[in-house]
Each structure stands twice: as C-alpha cells, then as structure tokens.
Nucleic acid binder design. Structure first.
Lengths: 123, 123
DNA sequence: CGACATGATATGCTATACTATATAATTTAT
DNA sequence: ATAAATTATATAGTATAGCATATCATGTCG
C-alpha cells in the first residue's frame, strides 16, 4: 500500500529529506566547488552518507543536518507559520539578482565563493 | 557576540536539540494547553518520547521534528546565514506585543488559541 | 586510451532513535 | 490532604541513522 509506484516523470518521490532541503544543500555544495567527499570531511561524515542524504535515501538526525547546512553558511530556524511566506520571499529576494535597470554594485553574495580550482595531486 | 550561553551550574550539558528549539516547542505546546500525551497523539509519538525530545535526552530525526513543529503551527526553514538576524528580528517583532503608544488593533496572534478548558471526564 | 575525480551502491557493524508499556515522581486541582 | 493529571524514568525490542570500507559506473582531462 505504501508502495505506490507513482514515480512521477520528475521528482522521483523518495522518503528522505524534503526536496528543497536536498536541492539547496547540493546546490550550495556545488557552488563552492566541493565534492561529496570534501563536504563530508568538513563535517565528519563519509562520502556515501552525504550521497544518501542528498539523494533522499535516508533522513538524517537533526544535529547531522544542522552540521551540514552550517558549513554551507546556512542555518535552520523555527518559523511561525504566519511568517513563512515573508521569510521565503526574503530569501528569494536575495537569491534572485534583484532585477532592476541598474545592477546593484555588489552581487547578492551569499556563499558566493570562488569555486577555487583544485589540482589532482592535492589531498 | 552571540547570545551568551549562560551555562551556569545548571543546564547540565545535554546532547539533544538546541535549547531554543526545545523551549519553543514546549512553550507552543503549553500555549495550546496540550500535555505531552496530547501532542504526541497528534503526531503519532508516545508521551515518553516527547518528554525525551523536550528535555534534550535525545536528538530526533529531522522528519520527526518537522512533524512536531507543524502541528504547533510552525515550520522549519533553511536560511542563508546573512539573513538569519533579519529573520530572527522578524520573529521577535511578532512575538513581542509591539510596544508603541497606540496598541495595534489586532493582537500579534500566532498560535494564540484559547487554551480550551478540558474537563476530567473527557476522553 | 589510461589516470583520476566524483558519485552511487553494497556490506557488516555500532549507536541510537523510535515503539510499547509500566510505573515512579511531580505538579495541579478539588 | 487526597485525587487526578502530567511528566519523568525504566525496560525491552525494532528500525534505522551513522561509521568504515570497498567497489562500480561515469565523467573529465592529459
């Protein structure tokens, strides 16, 4: 019964973390030019575990998730329901380039670190 | 700097959820006049487990926590670090009565439901 | 092509969240 | 003070997150 194979064409319903959490984590990781191994190392998790979290194979403990998002310069907050839309638009506003005629002088620069080239002989 | 964590003689360093999460959950529960048993029932957890979560004895899985806060009319969001202060003051603003000369017409009414009297012969 | 980096999968083991239940300890009400 | 409700603790079993490691598949680049 719980097995409904309604695997849409798209999101591939899994039972792990909410999709937006998974996507944002992965996106933030890639934006830094980090591999799963590198991210895992920073927080003390093995690469396969990062893979399992990002793919929704497992749902991590709260503290594990918190560690993860924090090395990605994010945080997890408890938000009253009525404030959720406001907070989300705040986030979106920062995310999007702030489209006006004039570009703002400073890029919306969160976690916008140079992907930092990595050589193959580095540990 | 941050909010000086007054780890006095008391708090007895636990490994559970962050303290503010635990306190806010408990506060929201009490505000509704719910006991641990009642809260647990709404989300399918036994009372001792709620106790363990609130007291910091354990750190729950993310999905468990999410279920919990949602029946308390709250949500958990991923916030970019730079936005955290803004979001927090948004929350505080709503929390606090908005102290001005004129009171606002409508109370800052989140989760501000009548504690709903309960009689002892009720199931 | 071959060397290498990355991510996905698999296995065995350990730690612990979670379930279910009972009961003690506290708090609140009458 | 007694009863009732609420919360904390205890025990035992199950499910699964997390750890460590190896391997496979894929992609990139020289």
């Amino acid at each position: 019964m719980t097995h409904d194979t309604l695997r849409r064409i798209k999101p591939l319903r899994l039972k792990g973390l909410p999709e937006d959490f998974r996507l944002k984590i992965k996106e933030a990781r890639l934006k830094r030019g980090w591999g799963q191994r590198e991210l895992g190392a920073k927080v003390g998790l093995p690469q396969p575990h990062i893979s399992a979290i990002e793919s929704g194979e497992i749902v991590p403990r709260f503290d594990t998730l918190l560690d993860l998002v924090r090395v990605l310069d994010q945080d997890i907050l408890l938000i009253p329901r009525t404030l959720v839309p406001a907070v989300q638009s705040l986030i979106r506003a920062q995310r999007e380039p702030a489209e006006s005629e004039e570009q703002s002088l400073y890029a919306a620069d969160d976690e916008e670190n140079a992907p930092k080239e990595k050589r193959h002989d580095e540990v």
